[in-house]
Design a protein around this nucleic acid. Structure first.
Lengths: 125, 125, 125, 125
DNA sequence: GTGGTCTAGACCACA
DNA sequence: GTGGTCTAGACCACG
């Protein structure tokens, strides 16, 4: 397991991934994350790098560490709800910005998106 | 003019910008681009950096260099049309992927997007 | 009860707390402290940690251990008076040092402090 | 030069120091800081540690880095003014909290402080 | 030259 | 066992 993109720092790619797991409820409030060392082995990455990922997410307020016990998803559910909202808006904002800079109209954006979803939709609404 | 983002290489940010200018028809087929030197001055950037930007776009097939004359947007209009379609689908694809990984439903994606466009729409459609 | 700060060792935070309880006369000269085991349960903390807290304060001369009876606040009242004075001056000294290093004038320090006390004063004076 | 406190991380002690230098205008808006490597040598500390110090301060918004050029105090003077205010209030807040927990009255705090300043005042008002 | 990332390996405090 | 800090040394992109 070492499928990392060269253009973005590993610690950020991992942070993004965990962020998504939390936002998609794959990881739940209060749940314990693997230890830094375990993660290091799992992703074939230096523990320091994992450490950086975890602190980054702690700074964002969605992870908490308990001394000598490990790192946990925060139990403050509001933070998680808010994070979900934040990430959604962030993604939409940059997507729309880029599309508009490329000269696509709102109509083209929406209908292009609908076409895409129609093709690949797995029925999850 | 030196409003560059720290996280991405300047040469790529320039390439993206030119890509957008071409796709949005701000730059037209066959049009001459400023010389490397001019661009360097205009954006207050090292000529090496511009050089790299141009080669990148040449590799993508939308710029052409004529020795002794300068760098031009390709005159093969199909390439440009195709590039526009490519960039659009690329953007949509990765946007939808990320949103789905975060557990957002097709409904949330579309309506979130519509909300956003409603708020910020500049009337272009 | 496990509201501990991550940045400082727990045993020290406990020592500080007891120090304050003694200096504020919440704990009086000669008074018996809870046993190590009781404290451990009360604060949901390992007995080793409490042990360390107590020895620390013994070293400072304000606690005394009587073998087979438990741990007590010293009965030498002067030590307590002196400790109160020490802690006060210590706090003031480092506070002023830091403020002066940051370039705050004596006037700014005093008036900033008065402003703060005016806002938050609970009437104790 | 390796006068560091054992109880606090070096990178934070350095951040505090720089924070103070900026707030006291010893370092001015837009001024260039020594390179990571220079600082490392000066304080006999690993460049990585300095790096962490700098990023910490960048996150706080008072430093900025320009790729390939170095690290600078931000030129947005308001951020600096605000930081001065923040640090002042932070210091006052924790000082007063500690003193009140130790049972000192507002009167004792203020007059203790005034006594202290009277003794050591260097004429800066 | 600059900062940014990563690794390997070490030591520490804490539970 | 856990996370937190630090070092030494490496490689990279950028100007």
């Amino acid at each position: 397991m070492d499928e990392f993109n060269a253009s973005k720092p590993i610690y950020q790619q991992l942070a993004d991934r965990i962020n998504r797991q939390i936002v998609s409820k794959e990881l739940k409030a209060g749940e314990k994350l693997p230890s830094i060392r375990e993660m290091g082995i799992k992703y074939n990455v230096n523990p320091n790098t994992i450490q950086r990922t975890y602190s980054e997410l702690e700074r964002e307020g969605i992870l908490e560490t308990k001394r000598g016990q490990g790192t946990f998803v925060t139990e403050q559910e509001e933070r998680l709800v808010q994070q979900r909202e934040n990430l959604k808006n962030e993604q939409i904002l940059t997507f729309v910005q880029v599309m508009q800079e490329m000269g696509f109209s709102s109509y083209e954006i929406i209908s292009g998106l609908q076409d895409h979803l129609r093709k690949f939709d797995k029925g999850d609404e």
